[in-house]
């Protein structure tokens, strides 16, 4: 993986995924390794983000590296009309690695083609967010002690959520059984269901969020966004019918853990937060170790 950009989760084989997770485990045990000393990392966020940007910057700081960059396009030369190509061609002179979030789909792949240093995609529009997927996989493996043969329930916006699409594809390497729980208008797109059929994996679709979660090992919750609905009343009705509450967890398996890429709005009731099954905040911490592992392996330091 040395010098190879990470643009899409599909760029990583099953072996690459497992190698990265093993490396992340090492960083969790010993996070204070000054591997990035003397390295400069550009963090280019053309679109605002809290978790992804801060966890990358935290990972870089803990590893002794320096961060340069910007947190929104307003503070970059894009404001003056500079093209993405020119920004990347300029910035790659100043750094050893570029981390980029951009609102246009495919921007990260393009950046990796014009850059002379590796690029890590921190989200390109609705397309890919591979470091999120790797931290989701890390969280699943850590809580279940395996990635194989798990029952994964995905809940909420399955149509537009890039995190669910990437996770679905990555988990298809591990004989997963899927349950898709969503309003009819936000169903899992056909292309992903076809992908699972071709791989011979089982999935079920549900519109009711009820006791079907009793077999789940992992529930992956997502936010239903207002802008996906043309009718605001429909949105109000829908968002309240896909809410996870503590009393729904009574008959669930003891190893069940609840994940969420965050930010949440109301889809996980706060009464779930104290449950041992709630894992979304530790999941965010795992993002730091996973990103340490990704950067170290791309820079050939591990």
């Amino acid at each position: 993986m040395k010098n190879k950009s990470l643009i899409s989760i599909n760029d990583y084989s099953k072996e690459d995924i497992i190698k990265t997770l093993d490396l992340a485990e090492g960083f969790e045990k010993n996070p204070d390794q000054k591997l990035l000393e003397g390295k400069v990392i550009a963090s280019l966020f053309f679109e605002p983000s809290t978790r992804t940007r801060l966890s990358f910057e935290s990972a870089i700081s803990r590893l002794g590296g320096k961060v340069i960059g910007f947190a929104s396009k307003d503070s970059s030369s894009v404001q003056k009309g500079e093209s993405l190509k020119d920004t990347i061609k300029t910035v790659n002179n100043y750094c050893d690695l570029i981390i980029m979030r951009h609102p246009l789909e495919g921007s990260a792949r393009y950046a990796s083609e014009v850059a002379t240093v590796p690029v890590i995609n921190a989200g390109d529009g609705a397309n890919q967010h591979p470091t999120q997927t790797l931290l989701d996989l890390y969280s699943i493996r850590k809580t279940q002690n395996t990635l194989e043969n798990l029952n994964l329930s995905m809940v909420g916006d399955l149509k537009y959520g890039r995190t669910v699409h990437s996770l679905l594809m990555a988990m298809s390497n591990f004989n997963t059984t899927y349950h898709f729980i969503s309003p009819p208008e936000l169903r899992m797109p056909e292309e992903y269901k076809l992908f699972l059929q071709e791989k011979g994996l089982d999935y079920e679709e549900h519109t009711d969020f009820t006791d079907i979660i009793s077999d789940a090992d992992i529930i992956y919750m997502t936010r239903i966004q207002r802008e996906r609905f043309s009718d605001p009343m429909e949105y109000e009705k829908t968002k309240n019918s896909y809410v996870l509450r503590n009393n729904m967890l009574e008959s669930t398996k003891s190893n069940l853990r609840i994940l969420h890429p965050l930010p949440r709005v109301n889809e996980i009731h706060e009464d779930v937060d104290d449950s041992i099954k709630a894992y979304y905040f530790p999941q965010a911490l795992n993002g730091v170790y996973t990103r340490m592992a990704i950067m170290a392996s791309i820079l050939g330091l591990q």
Binding site: S83, S107, Y110
Partner: peptide, 14 residues
């Protein structure tokens, strides 16, 4: 042409 209006190829010279 890519059918996705939000694709980089429809917005930058790619």
């Amino acid at each position: 042409k890519c059918g996705n209006p939000n694709c980089i190829t429809n917005n930058d010279n790619v």
